[in-house]
C-alpha cells in the first residue's frame, strides 16, 4: 500500500473516532490499512431510524486519488442499495469522488443517502419500483428490514407472520423476506416465485 494511503487512513480513523459520538464508527479489519469496517446509524425520521448499518470499506492502493470501495454488509431495503450485494449507487463513490473527501464524509454521505433516496437512479430496480408505485409499503418494508437486520425498533408483525408462513414451507428466511418484499408482501406471488 502506498505510503500516502496508509498515512491518510490513520488520520481519517482518528478523525472519525474523534468526531460525532455514536453516529459513525470505523474499525480496522487488518493491519494493512486496506480493509475497514464502518458503521452508521439510520438517520432520524426515516424508515432506517434506530438501526445500525455495517459497511465494508476497501481502500485502493491509489487512495485518495481513487475512491474507496464501500458496500453495505447489513441488508438494506433502499432504492440505491442492492438488496442482494449491498452495493451502493452514490456518485461520490464513483465519478464524483474528490481527493479532499474522507471516510468520514463518505459515511456521512451514505447516511444522507439513506435519508433521501434517489429512485430515478436506482441500484436495485425492484426496490425503486416499489418506492415509486407504493411509497407507504416501501417505507414499511424498509422499516421491517431495519428491524430484522439492523436492530431497528419497529416490529412489523404482519410481515413477520408472512415470512414465518414461508419458513414453514421450508424456505430460507432471507430468501422468503426478499421474495415477499419483491412481491409487495403477496404470499402467493412470493411462493410462486420461490418454487418456480
Amino acid at each position: 500500500m502506498a505510503n500516502i494511503a496508509a498515512k491518510r487512513i490513520k488520520r481519517e480513523i482518528i478523525e472519525v473516532v474523534k468526531g460525532e459520538e455514536g453516529v459513525l464508527k470505523l474499525e480496522l479489519v487488518n493491519n494493512a490499512w486496506t480493509d475497514l469496517l464502518g458503521e452508521i446509524a439510520g438517520p432520524p425520521d426515516t424508515p432506517y431510524e434506530g438501526g445500525l448499518f455495517k459497511l465494508e470499506i476497501k481502500i485502493p492502493e491509489t487512495y485518495p486519488f481513487n475512491p474507496p470501495k464501500v458496500r453495505f454488509i447489513t441488508k438494506v431495503w433502499h432504492p440505491n442499495v442492492s438488496s442482494v450485494t449491498g452495493a451502493i449507487c452514490l456518485d461520490i463513490l464513483k465519478d464524483q469522488w474528490a481527493a479532499a473527501l474522507t471516510l468520514r464524509t463518505v459515511l456521512l454521505s451514505i447516511q444522507a443517502l439513506l435519508a433521501s433516496a434517489e429512485p430515478n437512479d436506482p441500484q436495485d430496480a425492484v426496490v425503486a419500483r416499489q418506492y415509486i408505485e407504493n411509497e407507504p409499503l416501501f417505507e414499511l418494508t424498509a422499516r421491517h428490514w431495519t428491524n430484522v437486520y439492523a436492530n431497528g425498533p419497529t416490529v412489523v408483525w404482519e410481515f413477520n407472520q408472512k415470512v414465518q408462513t414461508l419458513l414453514e414451507m421450508g424456505v430460507d428466511e432471507h430468501n422468503a423476506r426478499v421474495a415477499l418484499s419483491t412481491y409487495n408482501w403477496d404470499v402467493e406471488g412470493a411462493t410462486e416465485q420461490i418454487f418456480s
Binding site: 488520520r11 482518528i14 485518495p64
Partner: peptide, 17 residues
C-alpha cells in the same frame, strides 16, 4: 501520529499531512 497533526491551514486536504 496525532501529535503531528497540523493546523488546518497547514494541512493538505489530499494527504491530510
Amino acid at each position: 501520529v496525532l501529535s503531528n497533526q497540523p493546523e488546518s491551514r497547514y494541512e493538505c486536504p489530499v494527504c491530510l499531512n
